[in-house]
């Protein structure tokens, strides 16, 4: 038996403090979090698309995507939907509460590959959580990327995560921000109304020099992929974030296995080509 290489306990969380909680849409909140230990906080960095394991004391641990960008170090952000045991208790916490946190885990978006390419970001529902990290990253290092387009749709304006932040980008010269809702009873929605698929007809993308990053509910993938194939996107220029039930986040518990890959280690970001090669994927 060879010696253990690092005397490091991968399962040991660090203490972190909730700095602020921003209400988002119904049942969703944005948590701003900071490591208690300044040294850890200073040295902490990550990639858009990675996730962390959060502990709510007394309830347990669950994985959440990083919604903030490493270009703004110090405070990290999680956009979280209330769904069960851990998230219920998290929603009962107030600013200044302590939580546990470990990570970052997963591969994240292949930023180096994306550089100098155009970028088409397509989000649905909570898929905006990891994609907001990518969007911020790209806008903060604008000169390293080509044209940037965001397509994001919801049922109505009250369904849109990061609504005000994204509405601010509508007229931005930095990017092409396309937002759409199916219905708007309030009559105040300043962007498009109609099915999100219609937005695809309004964009010009050059498939050969563009990477598409998609994240959303399973049904969304189907129509988005169709639209991308219509435009001759090659399979390795389509990046998707896959979700699976996870426990450990570090490739040991077996829960997130899909085919012969572990989403927590080899993913959650896969090209469409890679996903096709996984026996159980789409």
């Amino acid at each position: 038996m060879k010696k253990i290489i690092k005397e490091l306990n991968i399962y040991q969380p660090h203490s972190a403090r909730i700095i602020k909680i921003h209400p988002q849409i119904q049942g969703h909140r944005l948590f701003l979090v900071k490591f208690e230990d300044d040294k850890i906080s200073r040295n902490f960095t990550y990639k858009p698309g990675q996730f962390m394991e959060l502990t709510v004391f007394g309830s347990g641990e669950a994985p959440f995507s990083l919604s903030s960008s490493p270009t703004r170090p110090g405070i990290i952000e999680f956009c979280i939907r209330q769904t069960g045991k851990v998230t219920d208790s998290l929603f009962r916490l107030s600013p200044n509460s302590l939580i546990g946190i470990r990570g970052p885990y997963g591969n994240g978006f292949p930023i180096e590959k994306l550089e100098n390419n155009d970028l088409l970001i397509v989000a649905g529902g909570l898929g905006m959580a990891p994609l907001r990290s990518l969007l911020r990253y790209v806008l903060d290092s604008r000169e390293r990327f080509g044209e940037v387009t965001l397509i994001y749709g919801g049922r109505n304006p009250d369904d849109m995560l990061f609504k005000y932040e994204l509405l601010d980008l509508l007229d931005s010269p930095e990017m092409n921000c396309l937002l759409s809702v199916d219905r708007d009873d309030s009559g105040t929605w300043p962007a498009c109304i109609g099915p999100v698929t219609a937005l695809f007809d309004r964009i010009k993308v050059e498939a050969r020099s563009t990477y598409a990053a998609i994240c959303g509910p399973p049904i969304m993938y189907k129509y988005v992929l169709e639209k991308l194939f219509e435009r001759n996107f090659s399979y390795d220029r389509i990046l998707m974030s896959l979700e699976r039930h996870m426990k450990c986040g570090v490739g040991k518990c077996g829960h997130c296995a899909i085919g012969y890959k572990y989403i927590c280690m080899d993913g959650p970001i896969f090209t469409y080509q890679e996903a096709l090669d996984l026996p159980e994927a789409v």
Binding site: T55, G58, G60, C248, K252, C253, H255, A257
Partner: peptide
């Protein structure tokens, strides 16, 4: 070797995070 993880109240001074054997044959596994 698959396992599940849970936080349980085990003593007066606090919680224990335990891991237990799990099985991919259970419906809840995924």
């Amino acid at each position: 070797s698959c396992f599940d993880v849970a936080d349980l109240l085990r003593s007066r001074d606090g919680y224990s995070r335990i891991r237990t054997w799990d099985s991919c044959m259970f419906a809840g596994f995924t």
